[in-house]
């Protein structure tokens, strides 16, 4: 699949945004207290901005954005619709949460906690929906994979953890150790999951040109696609980065997304290098871009079979 910048930016950025907000709320609920109200508002604002920027960018790839508002109408079946509904629903809930917290002087009442939990669930749901948009697509084997949604969720929570910890340093002068620790564990978990994912999509399975044409026991080769220039289908689905490039990118991704942040964050444990998290964050962000780019570039829609591929 062709990696479109707007979509990469959307999933990565809003993923971090929701992750950060989840951490923010979760930590308050865990700690039972809000801490510096102003910092809460700043972090909340950053999180919400990231989520919003992401969402806005996702509308950029709509060919007919004037109908975007209709996207909420098929909650019953469409993960995209659900994502839209949840992401929209999130705003009032998190704003109410912030407002009541604010008006309540930062005091967490049960009612407020409930709202917080609800916001957490909605954020989770939003990210899950994003994952499910891809995971539900049967024609794309690399996406229609049980690890895709967990990975989306993991990356959101993981990047949120780092962001949260980093903002702790920025606003309160110290990293959040809980978040840092969680980050390390989550990151290792996602690494493991990602490796399993790579293994699972590496298996030669799924539809073939044989099943796509009905000639299941013969060798089938495209002779003529019926057009010379690219069509919507080839532009949308036929993207070839080249095996070497993909492999190199996988390594780059592993370094940027896993190795560098991990080393830097672990370094803050033993050395007095807390500001390294800023670099960890940058590396993670870039790594996530690489991960998302690969997620698209390695996905092979079955329609490619009709245009010359032997296997999806």
């Amino acid at each position: 699949m062709k990696p479109a910048f707007s979509v990469l930016f959307f999933t990565v950025t809003s993923g971090i945004g929701y992750g950060l907000l989840m951490w923010l709320v979760a930590m308050q609920l865990l700690r039972g207290q809000v801490g510096e109200l102003q910092n809460f508002l700043i972090v909340g604002f950053i999180g919400l901005t990231l989520a919003t920027l992401g969402l806005l960018s996702s509308t950029l790839h709509l060919a007919n954005p004037k109908n975007a508002w209709r996207a909420f109408s098929r909650f019953g079946t469409s993960w995209l619709s659900r994502e839209g509904v949840f992401s929209l629903l999130y705003y009032p809930v998190i704003l109410i949460y912030a407002y009541v917290l604010y008006t309540n002087g930062g005091e967490l009442t049960t009612a407020i906690k409930v709202i917080g939990v609800v916001s957490l669930l909605i954020a989770l749901a939003t990210v899950i929906c994003t994952g499910m948009i891809y995971a539900s697509l049967k024609p794309i084997r690399q996406w229609h994979n049980p690890l895709v949604t967990p990975l989306y969720l993991l990356f959101s929570v993981t990047s949120g953890a780092l962001a949260y910890s980093m903002l702790g340093l920025a606003l309160e002068g110290s990293l959040s150790h809980l978040a840092s620790n969680a980050f390390v564990i989550l990151l290792l978990t996602s690494l493991l999951m990602k490796v399993i994912y790579f293994k699972s999509i590496g298996k030669p399975e799924g539809s073939t040109i044989g099943s796509a044409t009905g000639f299941t026991q013969a060798q089938v080769r495209l002779l003529d696609a019926g057009h010379n220039a690219d069509t919507f289908l080839t532009k949308e689905f036929v993207f070839d980065a080249g095996a070497m490039k993909l492999l190199r990118l996988r390594w780059l991704m592993i370094i940027l997304l896993f190795v560098v942040p991990l080393v830097l964050v672990v370094a803050t444990y033993t050395f007095d290098v807390a500001p390294a998290v800023y670099f960890a964050m940058v590396s993670l962000y870039l790594g996530l871009f690489a991960e998302r780019w690969l997620f698209f570039a390695e996905a092979r829609h079955v329609v490619r079979l009709y245009h010359g591929d032997q296997r999806a």
Partner: peptide
């Protein structure tokens, strides 16, 4: 239709 292309992705 809002032109999101998702249906085309879902069509094998």
């Amino acid at each position: 239709c809002m032109g999101c292309n998702l249906c085309s992705w879902a069509c094998p």
